[in-house]
Design a protein around this nucleic acid. Sequence first.
RNA 1: UGUCCGAUGGUGUAAUGGUAACACAGCGCCCUUUGGAGGCGUUAUUCUUGGUUCGAAUCCAAGUCGGACAGCCA
Length: 600
Amino acid sequence: MSPENKAPAAPAPSDFIRDVVEKHVAEKKYPQIHTRFPPEPNGYLHIGHAKSICLNFGIAHEFGGVCNLRMDDTNPTKEDIEYVDSITEDANWLIAGWADKNLGLKPKGKTPDTITSNGKADFQLAPIPNSELRTPNSGSAEPFYASDYFDQIYEYAVALVKKGKAYVCDLTPEETDEYRRQAKESPYRNRSVEENLDLFTRMKAGEFPDGKRSLRAKIDVTSPNIWMRDPLLYRIRHAEHHHTGDKWCIYPMYDFAHCLSDYIEGITHSICTLEFEVHRPLYDWILENLDLPRPLPHQYEFARLSLGYTVMSKRKLMQLVNEKLVSGWDDPRMPTISGIRRRGVTPEALRNFAYNIGITKYNGITDVAVLEHAIREDLNKRAFRRLAVLRPVKVVITNYPEGKTEELDAVNNPEDESAGKRKVPFGRELYIDQDDFKEVPPPKFFRLKPGGEVRLKYAYIVKCDEVVKDANGKIMELRCTADLDSKTGGATANRKVKGTIHWVSAAHAIDAECRLYDRLFTEAEPEKDGRDFKSVLNPHSLEVVTAKCEPSLKDAKPDLRYQFERLAYFALDKDSAAGKLVLNRTITLKDTWAKEAQKK
RNA sequence: UGUCCGAUGGUGUAAUGGUAACACAGCGCCCUUUGGAGGCGUUAUUCUUGGUUCGAAUCCAAGUCGGACAGCCA
């Protein structure tokens, strides 16, 4: 295929944040665009994070910049190394082959350099340059950690104290709350610099118990924005940190650590979700009051993703895991990146989805159909077609010789000629799906029925002569005759019959455990009107069947995708072993017959 | 209650003072050895009121509705 014939690349995305970046690039405001993706390692990444990853890495990718992966780990009591590892893996999976060249990592163990910028002392930690290895956690590179800057952030706090812009406060958490609500100054607000310095040093040294004192910024307790009413900068927490161990017993708050981490890393555009909008004045205040010599980062906010038929908050996802309502963070029904990956969705599909939904400041609920469309569109192009029967009914072709086997040609992917062909065995005894036979067919039923004809895909046209039942009336087998001239190339091959169904040869079929996943909730908005989201869990979100599959599926590969013709897309699950196939249903094919049948 | 933010078909977005468009969903037709895919067509939209203007989704004002925040969480 010549390059001209290739489908045009999707136009570069455009939104209000990219407009700003584009303007800055045109003005040459920064030497390089530098974003960051900064999750707290207190849970697994979900599809909402995927939106953020696509935005931050997308901007770096489109404007020739860098996007740092950073663990925002300033609260030791909630974080864990398990999450650091999963976040690294998930982020890397999503950007692989796309923006991996723009991924900012740092040398393992490296902390900020103390440098001189414009004649002033400065802290800086640059990513490893483009040319070097950027695979996370392999060899010499690793993500950034806010906790690697605790020394520098402490220095910045001391600087604020010395400038009279921060003070040690002895109010209890409850009192602090009350004072802030009432716009009252803390009685400790006007301590001397010397006393503040002494107390802050002793806080760091571990002289005081948790909650006894805090470091607060001295801004304006009457500000209409509560975040400017002398916010906390440091709290005492005698707790072991997953990355810094027991070195610290005071930890900076998000607001203090985040802007400074951005600055230290040389971030130009700090993009976060809408709930931080009211924090932006504080973000700016801290940076502007520290006499920093390099250009300051700026914060931009966008609406987080809400998706129908699922929940997104880490707290609720954690609840589903802990209460064993799902099998784990990577249960294929979970909206986590690891769950979505295990389900069989590709990173390309997820990226296309992120592209399609756009970036705005409006809090809407995205229809899952948009996600499902992106998944089907991607899988349709790449999946190998296979014949498999989920709920088998036996069919005997009475005019087909016993013991005879034919190897019939079947295309691997009608969308992609280069995917080639394979052989599927045909014999006298077959399985078809229960749904493809109706003894009393409804109107417009194009499949097999008593006395009716149907095409067996890639094989013959058959007619159902007899329905054999057991004593209870259960269908045991369907006895059919084939038009033996009707297979491809035969005399009657072009005869038109209304329906075509899939099948497998009973003698050659192999078994596979198929896990049929459906949406986790029965309601588009599980928490609407404050109801308990667990009360609307879909009891049928997982059904397990043993499918009869064409024999070529024994070589199924974990990185390939399969379409069981006329049914759904499947991917190999990690529970598979030699001789034991386990397949996850990623998503069904569109089923216009089901829709038609529903109209009754 | 205060502060901030937002409002365009059923849903999500575009139009940056000049013909309201795209995708998904829906509906209809064509095609089809997948009731898949594809093709064609179609339904349906600027929160309200006032103002500025030759002209407003866009600018201004007031209102209405919705969201976020008000942790020593991030």
